[in-house]
Amino acid sequence: MNRFSCPAPLPQRETVVMGHGSGGVLSAELLREVILPAFSNPLLDRMEDQAIFESPGRRLAFTTDSFVVKPLFFPGGDIGSLAVHGTVNDLAMGGAEPRYLSVSLILEEGLAISDLRRIVRSMGAAARACGAAIVTGDTKVVERGSGDGVFINTAGIGVARDGARMSASAARPGDAVIVSGPLGDHGVAILTQREGLELESAVESDSAPLHTLVRDMLDVTTEIHCLRDPTRGGLASTLNEIAGQSGVGIVLEEGSIRVRDGVRGACELLGLDPLYVANEGKLAAVVPAELADRVVEAMRAHPLGREAAVVGAVVDRDRGRVLMRTAYGTTRVVGMLAGDQLPRIC
């Protein structure tokens, strides 16, 4: 009956339109038909402005991250699963297990609803696999040209493990540096997809949630000094931050750092250094040397740590710097990047 005097917008099922961000009928429809089914759980289904939950006497971890990756879908993942894993991993690096996530979607007018559905389903599946519930969220729509398909912000709350006190300023001379696997998969997967490069062996993103790997490590010892996931800027940037904040030097052994052949090949082609390429399912840990073997052993028993290895040591000289001992016995500095790594001319 209302239609007669006040027509509702035309039914729109194929692409995102500005009206999907209006807060009106279309917004409700998008929520009800596309987004909520992907995340459904009792806290969210109450549909309040916030989620309220109990936390009796626990140490909580809280973090947020935004995701603007292009392309939205890439080998080994998509922006949705990445948005869950990224925040889960930020919690995990504090020794926390993820419990509750928020999701903010900024959609660009014209985005195919089928793509949005695929993304939120991937987010829902990733969150459930992590044992986390998406309990609150928001959706906005921006005009075509003001976004890039979809931007996602996630925030997460996790319960921190008793006794875990990791910090980037806690590395001590004599500690061992451990990396959980080969480097550069995510960055190269994105780059080859974005640039349409065809490689002999397709490289997949390593996007994965690391909290259970961390749990297994903390089961060995809570004496892990530093724990970081080397995302943007790669392992080199992460270790430079640790060296700087801890006031120590770090010496890497080139021969013990693993890089898959496909990643190496792409990096050779593009003039990039895998040490600076992003990972989304790897961690770097600094642990007392006498515990290193046991921690590595526990990591290798976990599917995400099969290729874990000690790659270097913390030293009492060259403070604030990361050095690499090459296969030839020479030494070079592994510095911080000024900006993005730029592909070289020739």
Binding site: D318, R321, T331, R332, V333, G335, L342, R344, I345
Partner: peptide
């Protein structure tokens, strides 16, 4: 500027204080 430039190559890979 360029990673190939002599100054940048020195800056990124310069020798260490221990040497």
């Amino acid at each position: 500027v360029s990673t190939e430039g002599a100054c940048a190559a020195y800056y990124h890979f310069r020798r260490t204080e221990s040497e």
